[in-house]
């Protein structure tokens, strides 16, 4: 068991390192000259050279990647110039570990930048996750139990509609009608728990989370329905019934346990990906989360921020993968962690 976890962690770290390398190579393959870009519009070749030197852009890819990696663990300074630090310490920006780079566009450390956005995206992600898991699995189970009835067909049909509609349309609809026209909910505007209390935080999150959740919920309804139906046709359910178990016990102890196992896998990975930012939802509701940051930084060629975001998202997915695998071993005794 421990050996398995250790093995998975090691592969996870290796994958992160690989990811950072690939992102770095892409960084260099991009047509934008980072030195020129950082220097601004009115720039002389001499000035560019100076910037290149200050930020290390003149070094080889390998050295730059090494500097970056060292920065992640030990922190670094921008620009890395001891003489400048002596002469004009106010021009040098400290980037403490874990340092993911320095954004030339926003003039801020990438780590700080991400740190500010994580609670916003995280809030939406977690709230949406709870909604879609409860709603999706619940409705999917109901659909499976009433297979072929009007309820089942209604649920499956509705989920198809939500699955097909673009998220931005649903988001705009929810923003326009329940919030702006009807005033049923406040117009969403992110407030942290510290500022607005639990209620203020939650009520403002409701619409963006719902927007995001509806799309996933639609998928989960169909998936849960399929898994529950599959589980209901298993021989061991016939055994459970022939023992005289009450229908509720057959459903919860025997059917759901088997049906939920594959859903756990999906849910873990889906959560990881929305934690990395829900681009459209955040844009529609004007939430300054990771998704919006990604859109902005790509639009402004803010490459250090892009690298930081990619690594963060990769880390989320890798960690979620490990967690799901370990969880799986607990759920299904047949999975030998060997």
């Amino acid at each position: 068991m421990y050996a398995y976890v250790a093995r998975r962690m090691i592969t996870g770290v290796l994958m992160l390192i690989l990811m950072s390398m690939i992102t770095f190579v892409l960084f260099f393959a991009s047509p934008v000259d980072p030195g020129r870009f950082a220097c601004g519009k009115n720039c002389s070749p001499a000035l560019i050279k100076q910037v290149d030197k200050a930020f290390g852009y003149d070094k080889s890819v390998v050295v730059q990647w090494k500097d970056f990696a060292v920065g992640v663990f030990k922190g670094r300074q921008y620009p890395e110039d001891p003489s400048l630090r002596k002469s004009a310490p106010e021009l040098v920006s400290d980037c403490h570990a874990p340092c993911l780079g320095y954004s030339q566009v926003n003039l801020i450390n990438v780590t700080t930048e991400l740190k500010d956005k994580i609670p916003i995206s995280g809030s939406i992600a977690v709230a949406a996750f709870l909604m879609w898991i409860i709603g999706g699995v619940g409705l999917g189970t109901i659909a499976a139990l009433t297979k072929g009835s009007l309820i089942d067909r209604g649920l499956v049909g509705t989920s198809l509609v939500f699955y097909a509609f673009p998220t931005f349309w649903i988001g705009l609809f929810l923003l326009e009608f329940p919030a702006i026209k009807w005033g049923l909910v406040p117009i969403p505007n992110y407030i942290s728990i510290a500022d607005g209390g639990l209620w203020g935080w939650a009520s403002n999150l409701f619409l963006p989370a719902l927007t995001l959740a509806l799309f996933y919920m639609a998928g989960y309804v169909r998936m849960t329905r399929a898994f529950v139906l599959e589980s209901m046709s298993e021989d061991y359910l016939r055994t459970a019934k022939s023992k005289g178990l009450a229908p509720r016990k057959v459903l919860f102890k025997h059917t759901m346990r088997a049906a939920l196992t594959p859903i756990v896998t999906m849910a873990g990975l889906d959560l990881a990906s929305v934690l990395g930012g829900a681009v459209i939802t955040e844009t529609v509701f004007n939430y300054n989360g990771l998704g919006k940051l990604a859109v902005d930084s790509i639009a402004t060629f803010d490459l250090p921020t892009v690298v930081g975001l990619v690594l963060l998202l990769a880390a989320f997915v890798i960690v979620a993968n490990i967690v799901v695998d370990i969880l799986y071993a607990f759920i299904d005794p047949r999975v030998r962690l060997g």
Partner: peptide, 29 residues
């Protein structure tokens, strides 16, 4: 009928691997 199942009439099946729930111990079942 449910209360008679397993008490008055019991059934065993062809393939005992698929007829038992894979996630619960033999003793539990």
């Amino acid at each position: 009928m449910r209360l008679r199942r397993g008490r008055d009439v019991a059934m065993i099946f062809q393939d005992p691997l698929s007829a038992m729930h894979p996630y619960y111990t033999i003793g539990n079942q």
